[in-house]
Each structure stands twice: as structure tokens, then as C-alpha cells.
Design a protein around this nucleic acid. Sequence first.
RNA 1: GGCCCCAUGGUCAAGUGGUUAAGACAUCGCCCUUUCACGGCGGUAACCCGGGUUCGAGUCCCGGUGGGGUCACCA
Length: 548
Amino acid sequence: MDYAALAELLFPHIDKTPDYYETLYPARQLSPGAKVTRLGPSPTGFIHLGNLYVAFVNERLAHQSGGVFFLRIEDTDEKREVEGAVEVIISSLEYFDIRFDEGVTVNGEIGEYGPYYQRQRGSIYQCFAKELVKKGLAYPCFCSEEDLQAIRDKQEKAGENPGYYGAFAKCRNLDPDEIERNIQDGKPFVLRFRSNGDPSRSFQIVDAIRGPLTMPENFQDVVLLKQNGIPTYHFAHVVDDHLMRTTHVVRGEEWLSSLPIHVALFKALDWPLPIYCHTTVLMKMENGNKRKLSKRKDPELSLNYYRSQGYHPKAVREYLLTIINSNYEEWRLANPDSPMEEFELTIEKMSSSGTLFDLDKLNDVSKEVLVRIPDEELYDFMLSWAKAYRPELAPLFTEKKDLLLRILAIDRHGEKPRKDLVYCEQIFDYFSYFFDDYFQVEDDYPEEVDREDIKPILESYINSYNHGDDRNQWFEKIRVLAAELDYAAKPKDFKKNPELYKGHVGHVSTVIRIALMGRASSPDLWEIQQIMGEEQTLNRINKAIAAL
RNA sequence: GGCCCCAUGGUCAAGUGGUUAAGACAUCGCCCUUUCACGGCGGUAACCCGGGUUCGAGUCCCGGUGGGGUCACCA
């Protein structure tokens, strides 16, 4: 039996030719330099920061070059598929402002290069599989799991490379009659690549991030089509990215070791290679060692975590940019008010060593980002966060919009704005004392103040309180009050002669601060009182006195 | 274990044969200050090791070591 006959035997139902698909998916009409990139998540229902990193790079590369960025769902593993996962992927990416031009959307697919669900591309893969069989570059393998295990055991004992190749590849040169008999018996088979690679030979390939790489040739007869006729990642990647006219394949470093397989397949099909860009993987520190982010072990790194905590998408994007391109921070310093999209990402500047995820840095970036977001916008952001993740807070936010707006404006608009807002959960906690239902006393009165002085301080304060006082009048009264109880009216006096005083006016203010908001540190007291209003202010003080 | 990738302060990293080895985060100190932040000033802290090549190596080469990735009909 010749190869053409074998191809017919294996794929009798495939009548299209490769040319048909080449014509159906013509070269894209784009301006020179435009990059076509893609994201190919598998619908396992989990997406983390590392995935966003890759998505972001792909998106920027396409869009800053006037190219195309598409979403292809790599659902070739039915077993791992999770219901609703595609929606999670799309909505997570959308939240972080990753926009696709083409591919899968919540309302179906858009674009001329589909279908974009791999499972719907069965006959396309089979067409090219058939072509490989015709060329003698693929063959059916009838080995069972047990057969494969036996091969592995044998290899392990002999100290040979594991895998299906060379002399170990039992089905590689099966008798044509036997193949025919097996097929007629309906015996299940996988389609394997007939590799002619030699592991002792190596080849060179240029990775756009890493530069020239030397890799051994692929020698494994890898599976192209599984028993169910669905391709493996390797085959799907090669066929799809060729037919979808991808120019740059940006993917995680974990794919580097299977690159020889992909190169061999492109060669077997006589197709040009895309430009490969293997990014560094995001790592996490564990027990003093770095480790790749894992979906199972690191739920706190899932995109949903950041979303539910209320991190602003811009903050996460900006953080990612700082680790994607090392010159980004420099650019940001020089262009504090420019949208980050104006920064041009360069592949060459991307790091190739494992990057540790740094929450401190994310938080710092977030502070800088939030301080530039207008109050009204920040309010809207917090409201939509509350609706999604803290529904019990949403009515409060809606009802007290004016109050929230004043709170969010505290000290954010001067020459040196406060930068203490990081993410919604934290922001709400930070200002929770404004709301009676969430107010609680968290700190003790300062130890510099005698316990028996606390009541007189608060009583004296409330007696002289005038809500109409301006900041200076108000603080002058506290100075007087402090002095009457033998506390220094000016901290410097106390520092100079600590033996002359019980403490200083700062300690006295802290007593008031704790009575008012239950904590020893906060933005300006007077301003907070003005926002709270006279009634709530006096109430808090009175309650504190009563609690003594 | 085989193969591949990677290696500058605690973290992210500039650096492409000659630099007092940038900067940011974190950390510490001081100043500002009624608290906390903000801001300002300053400090601690790094080229994994060993061989080469070179007048000269963080930078190039080789060998170790360390870390990571990968070895599926998963992606």
C-alpha cells in the first residue's frame, strides 16, 4: 500500500485539499511591520497574572503596530474543560482592558480566519494530517496505553530517552495489510508524526526575546491527532498559526522545550516559521526558592483575586509594564500624565530571566495610578466593585455618594497629594470610620497621656467645640486645652524640656483622633470633622466619654 | 536523570571591554509635621565560583555551581 492509499484509508471523508484552505485564508492585507498576534487559552476556568502578562504583550505588539490581535480558544482537551470558562477568560481580560480584534467573543465569533474554537476545526487539521500521511510524514499508531507504558519501562531500564521514536516506535513501519485490517476492525488509533530528526544534531533558531538559540532536533514521533481525531497542541498550533497568518507567537517559556517539535512540523508542511517570542514566566517565592506560578497552588494570583480586591486595571497593567519592559518606569517618570499606551513596548527589551511577582511593587504602582484618577471616576470604580464583590456596601455607596466623593478627595489635590489609596477593599477599610456601622475602636489611647486626663481632654474639647471654627481657630483651642492640663502646646517645647510636661499637643490630638475615628493615624482631623458634620463629630466624642 | 533556558543589592533591573556599577520598590536614619501619609535629604545593600582571552572582564570563551522549565493521546 502506498502513502496515498493509506491517506485515503485513514481519512476517507476528507475531500478538501490544502490549497483549498490556503485560498480560504489568504495572506492578510496589512501595512508593513504590522504584527498579527494571538492568545490561545485553554478553557480550564482559571486565568492568572502570568496569563495576563502574555496577553498584554501580545495585545500591545499587535495594536502598536497596526496589526491584529485575536482570541483562539484551545479546547482540544475535553477532559479539562470547565463550563463557563470562556466567559471567565473574556470577562477577565476585558476587565484588564485586553481587547481583541478578532476571534471568540461572548456573542459568537468575529473574523475571517475562523472558526476560532479549535474543536470546530477538526476537518481542517485532518486535511493537513492527510497531507502528511500522503508525504509519508505521518502514520497511524495502534498502541494502547499499556503498550506505551511497556515501552517506557523498557527505556527506563536501558537508560534510554523515553518516548515514541526510532526502534521503539512499534507502529512506525507497520505492515500495510495489518493497518488495513486494524482499520477495518475499527481499532482506535492516533496519528503520529514520522520524525526524521536526529537528537545528536542541533539547529539554530532566533527567538525575538532571547536571541539565537541552539536546540536539538526533534526525534520523537509525537502524536498529531488523538484517538478522537482532535489534534494535540503541537499540531493545532502549527496549523492554526499558519492558517490564521500569525506573525508573532508570544507565549510562555514553558513552550521552549517543545519548540523543536513545532519547527519540525512547520518544515514538514513546508510553511514559513512565525517569529517566536518566549517570555519569562512569572515566579513566586516559596521556602526561599523561586517557583513558577501555579493555578493549583496560587489562587491568590488568579486574576479574579485582583478583581475582587478591587485593584484598578490600570494599576495592574502598569505594574505588568514595569516588569515587561525595564525602561518603562523611566518613561513613566518622564511622562507622568501620558496614557501608558503611548509607551512603545519593545520585544528586545524584554527580560528572559524568571521574574518574581512583587506585591509591594504592585501596591506602590497602584498608589501612583490611583492618585491620578479623578474623584468621580474613582467613585464609579468603587461602586462597580462593590456591586460585584461587596453587594452589602453598594446601597451605602449609592446613598452616600456625596460623602464618598468628599472622602475620596481628602488631600488628593494639593501640590503633594496623599498616596494612600491602593485598592477598593483597602480604601473602604481605610475610610470605614466614616460609617457608624463600620466604625470600631482599633487603637488604644496614647501611653503618653495619663488615663485620668482622657476624660477631661474630651470634655474640655467638646465644651469648646465650635463646628464653624476654621482650621487655625480649632487647633488653637486644642493648644490651650493641652496647656491647661500641663501638656506642651508645641511639640518642640516638649522635646526640648520633656521633664516640664506630661506630653504635648500631638498626644492630646491623638486622644481626640481615637475618640473620633478609633485609630491613631488618619488624614487631617479638622477636615474629617468637617466632612463628618457636627452631629456625628459630637456623637463620637460623647460616646467615647461614656465608654470611659 | 536527559535536554533546554537563566544568573548584577531582599525584589524588578540599567549596563553590549575602560562607569565612583544607574534608577525604582522594600528597608533604615534625618528633616518637614498635632497623628499617619505626602514631600525632601541621606544610609545599608549586588556583578554565583573557577579558569582562560585581553593592557584592561559585570560585559567575551570554557568548566563548575545554583535556580527555573520540560520530558503526555495537557495545554
